[in-house]
């Protein structure tokens, strides 16, 4: 369907073009901002060399990492390298910054995909059923649980979960990425908040859809309740839901810093916070750009999904 969409409407290509330009502008603004602001956090030399290091070795360190030039020169050089897709070197790991970031991003992407698939399916099914009988027992339980889920601080859930399931019960390992068992706690903890939030949006959106005129028509045609919910109303209710799913997924792609830190999960969030704290500027910039690009791609996907779900949307 999306293929015919492209063939049919040349305007979607103009739209995608416009989106790409707008994002590119934002991305450049972001790079400028991060480049200059991150240097405000201090001089890496102080972190990487011993306190009693000589002035010469400090100078040498700065020379190697190009920290001696005035900032605008550093920036021009960086942008020049960037055009050749060279993201610079990590000071700490002495490897291309992009490599450090992509290694972390691979884990984060998997974590985000698994979590968001589970969240999406569960939230849509539970939310739709809750919306069908507003104020009923199922609705009340689902709403209350979703509220609790949306209110829970993830770091607290994470450490309580570790105490209960890893330390006391010994069911799952506390940290690392080795086996399937390692994934259970991080995924469950990350699942909770998005699930609560998206469930509420699904429910609200479904209530609106179920009270709309075309549902009346479907009842007058003799359509039964289940197809009314899942065929007639759901597809209409999905648009606002997709937006929120996008926001939540973006949050996960940015790296779930807290959960990754607590479970020792080597995702991009952990790479980023370490780089920030260690003033490894090239890695910070690479991480910002990789996640921003991933989020840009995801937003494009969402726009296309919009057009597929709702034939009235033509760009």
């Amino acid at each position: 369907m999306s293929l015919t969409l492209f063939a049919e409407s040349p305007s979607i290509r103009t739209f995608l073009g416009k989106r790409a330009i707008a994002s590119a502008i934002s991305l450049v603004g972001l790079v400028i901002l991060v480049f200059f602001l991150s240097r405000l956090t201090g001089d890496p030399t102080a972190l990487y060399l011993p306190v009693d290091a000589s002035q010469e070795s400090r100078e040498q360190f700065r020379e190697i990492h190009g920290l001696n030039d005035p900032l605008p020169v550093q920036f021009a050089r960086y942008m020049g390298d960037l055009l050749r897709l060279d993201f610079g070197m990590s000071i700490r790991r002495a490897e291309p910054a992009l490599d450090s970031v992509l290694r972390g991003f691979k884990w984060t992407l998997q974590l985000a995909l698994i979590t968001m698939s589970l969240v999406t399916v569960m939230a849509i099914v539970v939310g739709s059923l809750a919306a069908f009988r507003v104020g009923g027992v199922f609705d009340r339980i689902a709403t209350f649980c979703s509220l609790i889920a949306a209110s829970a601080p993830d770091f607290w859930i994470a450490i309580v979960a570790i105490v209960v399931f890893s330390v006391n019960l010994g069911w799952v390992p506390t940290s690392g990425t080795g086996t399937v068992w390692h994934w259970i706690l991080p995924v469950s903890v990350l699942f909770i908040r998005p699930f609560g939030l998206i469930l509420q949006v699904v429910r609200g959106s479904m209530i609106t859809a179920l009270s709309s005129a075309y549902v009346k028509t479907a009842r007058a045609k003799g359509v039964l309740d289940r197809p009314i919910i899942f065929v007639h109303a759901l597809r209409n209710a999905l648009l606002p839901v997709i937006t929120v799913i996008g926001d939540q997924a973006a949050g996960l792609l940015n790296g779930a810093v807290i959960v990754e830190t607590i479970f020792g999960f080597p995702g991009v969030g952990k790479v980023m916070i370490d780089a920030i704290l260690q003033r490894d500027f090239a890695v910070v910039l690479a991480a910002v750009m990789v996640t921003a690009f991933a989020i840009f791609l995801m937003n494009l996907l969402i726009d296309i999904l919009y057009a597929v779900l709702d034939p009235r949307i033509r760009y």
């Binding site: 005129a213 075309y214 009346k216 028509t217 007639h232 209409n236």
Partner: peptide
């Protein structure tokens, strides 16, 4: 049954 305002009474998607 048919209704007033057929646009909102037909499923848009």
């Amino acid at each position: 049954m048919i209704f007033q305002d057929p646009l909102s009474h037909l499923n848009p998607v």
